[in-house]
Amino acid sequence: MKSRRNIISSILLACVFAAACAPARAGFLFWGGEKPSVLEPARELFARGDYAGSAELFEAALASPAAGAADKKLAYWFLGQCHERAGKDDRALSDYQIAVRIYPKDMQLLLALGRLYQKTGLLDNAQAIFLKILNLDSGSFEANIGLAQIYMKEGFHGKAEKHYSAALESMAVRDAALWRGYAESAFAQRKYEAARGITDRALAMDSGDAETLLLSARIYGESGDKTAALAEIARAQAAAPERSDIVLRRALWLAASGDTDKSLALSQAELIKRPDDPLASLAAALAYMKSGRPALARPRLLAAAESKEEPFIARAALQLLKTLPE
């Protein structure tokens, strides 16, 4: 029953966002089924991407005595959307704040405000709004996801996992990125089995998601299965061959596992493209060290130590240089 309710609420929520891009007649889909005809010209402009023009009309509609409560809620929401899309987040925040003061229990306005707080980094405020939404509807998908993301960022991994679970487990949401976030919240608590199970579900939805494959590799790596970890990194590389960070991650792990020839082949290929690449230099140096060739490691570490953009790599390379045998 709960699952069905969640699915329905998520579809309704989806409609809210879709309506922003949909023709004006789609307004019947939300805020009480009243047809907000007074807003139609503004919505036509909005649908055409004229956010400045439509904002003016929505403001006029808000001042109009002809506008009913449903029109006004909708107008506030659209006004905020106009400002957000025009990059005026401060104005949008102000629109939503005013609207929420007038309609404190309106879910769509609360969600818009919460999401904008989250987007602008006002996490405490976003958290308070999402909690308020959950008080009104404990199954709110968006509020649970918002809270999960905030808690994860702040380090409350257990709480993040709880909210991801509430949002995703009972719904048929096929979004690998959200499931990856869920898996990360379990992994951050060293719950390897749970994290692997969730990652597998994410990969079943999108087997070519490089980030999920990298997470899977980390889970295998930390739980001791290095072979599986390396295989997952290789899959990630195949899924996103243009990403040098994945190539070099693989080079590092191959060096650590003792497969220095393969490791060097990868890092050298990157060094041909970018001769002073700090991470490629570090990976090559470690492979040379592991294969007993410190003399070849030295110039690579010297190159990595020169990096200004990657201060951690530069310092690590400098310290590793001091450990090389004469």
Partner: peptide, 17 residues
């Protein structure tokens, strides 16, 4: 609401190291 997979930005080299 459930946007298609966004292209993830490459990890920073310092973070990978």
């Amino acid at each position: 609401v459930f946007p298609p997979r966004a292209c993830a930005a490459p990890a920073k080299q310092d973070d990978v190291a």
